[in-house]
Computed example of a mutant assay.
Amino acid sequence: MLLGVVAVLACLVSACGGSGDEEEFTGARLDQPYAAPTVELTDTDGAPYSLAADTDKPMTLVFFGYTHCPDLCPLVMNNIAAGLNRLDEDDREQVDMVFVTTDPKRDDEAALRDYLDDYGEGFIGLTGELDDIVAAGDPLHLYVNDGKKLPSGGYDLGGHSTFVLGIDDEAEAVVVWNQETSAVEFANDIHTLLSED
C-alpha cells in the first residue's frame, strides 16, 4: 500500500512539474544558419530595408505573408504578437518583428502599416517588386509564389511558406518556428535565445 501511495505521489509531482515542459525549446535550431538576404525591400516609411544590413537587434523575427490572407497569416501573427507581449521589457527591447508581404500589388506601404498596427507597436513591414521578395525568401528557404495569373483570370497568391525565422545580430537565421507555435512557446524560446547571448 505504501508503494502505491508513493507511486501516486510521484505521478502527481511529475504532472505538476509542467514548468519544465513549458520552458522546453520548441523551435528548430539551425545547425547551419541561413545567411540573411542582402536584397533591399521598402519599409512602410518608404526607406530601403535589407534583412542582412538592417536587422541589428539581438533577435529579429521574420514572417512572409500578406494582408488579405484569410487564415494562416492572422493565426501566426496573433501568436507572434501575443508572444512578444509576454516578454519582459528588457527582452522586448531586444526584438524586432518584420513582416514581408508576398502580395506587393495590394500591400503598399500604407496597407502594411494599417495591418501591422493592429498587431503591435513597432512592427516593420516590407514590400517591393515581387521578384525581389522572391529573392529575399530564397536564402531563408522560404517559398514565395510567383503570383502568376490563373487560367480563370484570377491571381494565385496561395503559396507561401508559413515558417517564422529568427535572425540574430550577425545577420544569420539561427532558428525556425512552424505555424503551430503558440504565444507561450514564442516567448519562452525568444527568452532562451536572448539569455544565451
Rank of each mutant, 00 (worst) to 15 (best):
R29S: 08
G159K: 05
T181Q: 15
A35L: 11
Y155A: 08
V8S: 15
L2W: 10
L61G: 06
V176Q: 06
E23S: 15
S19R: 15
V8Y: 15
E22T: 09
I133H: 00
E172I: 04
G166F: 00
D138C: 03
T38M: 11
E40G: 01
A135E: 10
C69W: 04
S161V: 10
G166P: 00
P37M: 01
L3G: 07
N85S: 13
F64S: 13
G159A: 11
E172D: 14
P58E: 09
D168C: 05
D168G: 05
W177A: 13
D132K: 14
V8A: 15
L126F: 13
G159E: 06
G20N: 14
L30W: 07
P74L: 11
P139A: 11
T181A: 15
L72S: 08
C16D: 08
E172Y: 09
N188V: 07
A111Q: 08
D45Y: 10
L140K: 03
D45L: 14
D96G: 05
W177M: 14
T127R: 09
V184R: 14
T42C: 00
D146F: 00
D45Q: 12
C69L: 11
G4S: 12
D114V: 10
L61I: 11
H191N: 05
D45H: 11
D54Y: 06
A10K: 11
A187K: 01
D107H: 05
V6D: 06
L194D: 05
R86V: 08
G20W: 15
